[in-house]
Each structure stands twice: as C-alpha cells, then as structure tokens.
Design a binder for these strands. Structure first.
Lengths: 150, 150
DNA sequence: GTATATGCAAAGGGTTTGCACGGTT
DNA sequence: AACCGTGCAAACCCTTTGCATATAC
C-alpha cells in the first residue's frame, strides 16, 4: 500500500515510523494548536504510557520534516500546529492577557521593506506581537490596568 | 537638594530609594542592554552581596515606574534596557542565531493598519522577529543550515 | 516605629539529557 | 543484528516565592 504523506516525510528525513510520532501528529491535527503538555494529554487518551520527553522529541522531528510548526504566544510553552493551518499573527495584550489575531498578509509590505533593507526574511507568525488591546488602551486613559509580566 | 529624575519616579510610584535599585538602574544604563544575570554581575562589581532575586524585583519596579523596559530577543532570558534608548526591532536568525536590527519606525504603517483593524496598539520592539538572515537564506538554496530551536 | 526591601533557600514551570531497554528496519 | 527511539529520572535554565532580618521612611 502507498505510504501516507506523513510517513513519506519521516522516511525521507531518515526517521522511523513509530506509534508515538503518529499519535503526536494526530494530536496536533485534532487540537489544531496545543502546548507539549496539552498534546501529551491528548496522546494519553489513546496511549497512557507515552512520556512527555517523547512528545518533545517527536515535535522536534515532525517540525524538522515540515509537518508541524510552533509559535510563541504567551510567556509559557509554545503552541504547535499543523503546517497547513491558516497563518495569522497573534496579538497578546500585556494588560489583560487576551489574545487576538490578524491575517498575516497585512504585514507583507512591512516585511518586504525589512527584507529590502536587511535581507532578513521574517516569519511573522512565529512570535506573537505584544501591546494593548482596545479595551485596555481605552481603560488606561482612566486608570492603571492590571499588569502581567511581558 | 533636588531629587534626581529616577528618585522622583520611584517616590511617585510609592517605592523607596535603595542602593540596590540605584545599582541595578546604573547597570542597565552602563551595559545598555543586559539579562538579569548580566546585570547582577555588573552590580556585584560594586556590591558583592546583592542577590539575583533582588535584581529581578528591582527590574520589575524600575519597569513599573518607566525607567527601564525589556525585550525578548533569544529564547532565554529577556534583555533590559533604559527607556531613553534608541528603539529598534530585533531580527533573530533561526538558522545561525545572529541578531540584526532595524529602525522601529519602518513598522509604523503596518502597526497603524493593525490598530485600524483590531484596535490593538502594538509595542513592536517588545519581541524580536524570527526568520532567516541574508546569509542563511542564500545558503539554504544549496544545503540545509544549522537548526537551533525557535 | 512601621511598612517595605532584601537575602537566602527552596520550589516552580518548561525543557533537555544520560542511560538502559525495547522496537523498527 | 544494528541502530534508532522510548521511558524514566535527573538535571537544567530562568524565575518566583516564603520567611526572617534589615533598612528607608
């Protein structure tokens, strides 16, 4: 039988096909985005014996062969998602902690300019942008908002 | 005698003037940018007894009253700098780890657009952007570059 | 004198690593 | 059979916290 896409990718990268890697990939696809801990929880619904370090190692391999990516949203663990997912920029409010999103393509002119000036090719979705959401910037004109670390 | 600017700021914020806070602030200004560990080392050139947790607490207070800010550049500790410093965006290469910078104001049109669409006010210098520097994106057309975690 | 800051040590979250065992090829 | 991948436990980095003591006000 024909190998599935993900199997091909692993093979081509010189990696083996293992149940753990398959489960981690399926967890990423099912949850659409998740931290290593969250993915472990999902994986363990099927296979309780899987270890957190295996999830980390699997994610590293899956990312290496282009099946998943990760983004840094909050200050904690990164979130992983399947590569075919819709690309967006996360906007994290340093005041209330809320997370909003905008289409990544509105950054294109800016990123083109960065590349012209420096040659740097930016993966804008890799890290969330920080600042103040509408509510908190309005509130700020009245009184100091809450202040989580940034 | 007149209180220095930094003393005023602390007072106004309801904080006390302490040698530790002064030393941490001076370390930030001297190094121009540094991680908590690096700042501790600098502080300890003058006062060996100062503790790392005091540096963290001092930075938090100094940031609260607007004397310092921090930015997330690499994956490790954040770097602190004086508020009057030149504002720039850091560009971190996920392939070779190099860090470049561009003027923050080239992002203005983009950030205006983000605000129009979402109301979100972005502090673009707070987190470094990730991607590939000139060298590594050229090299990539020939062979796979090194791959530090992003 | 009283509230705040500090030092110390311990704990915390997230991640990586060494090693022996088990599974894939 | 050879090697890669896994589980486990320990270690790691960075940061926060509880508590007793010291210090700025």
């Amino acid at each position: 039988m024909a190998l599935a896409e993900w199997e091909q990718r692993l093979r081509t990268g010189g990696y083996r096909i293992t149940p753990q890697r398959q489960l981690v990939l399926e967890a990423v696809e099912k949850l659409r985005h998740g931290t290593p801990e969250e993915l472990l929880a999902e994986v363990q619904r099927t296979a309780t014996g899987v270890n957190l370090s295996t999830v980390y190692r699997s994610l590293e391999v899956l990312e290496e062969v282009g099946l998943v990516t990760h983004a840094h949203i909050g200050h904690g663990a990164p979130t992983y998602h399947a590569v075919d997912d819709h690309v967006h920029i996360h906007l994290v409010c340093d005041s209330c902690g809320s997370v909003n999103a905008v289409e990544a393509d509105i950054a294109e002119p800016f990123l083109d300019q960065v590349r012209e000036r420096t040659g740097f090719i930016t993966d804008i979705s890799h890290v969330a942008l920080h600042g103040r959401c509408t509510n908190c910037s309005v509130a700020r004109t009245r009184e100091a908002p809450t202040r989580p670390r940034g």
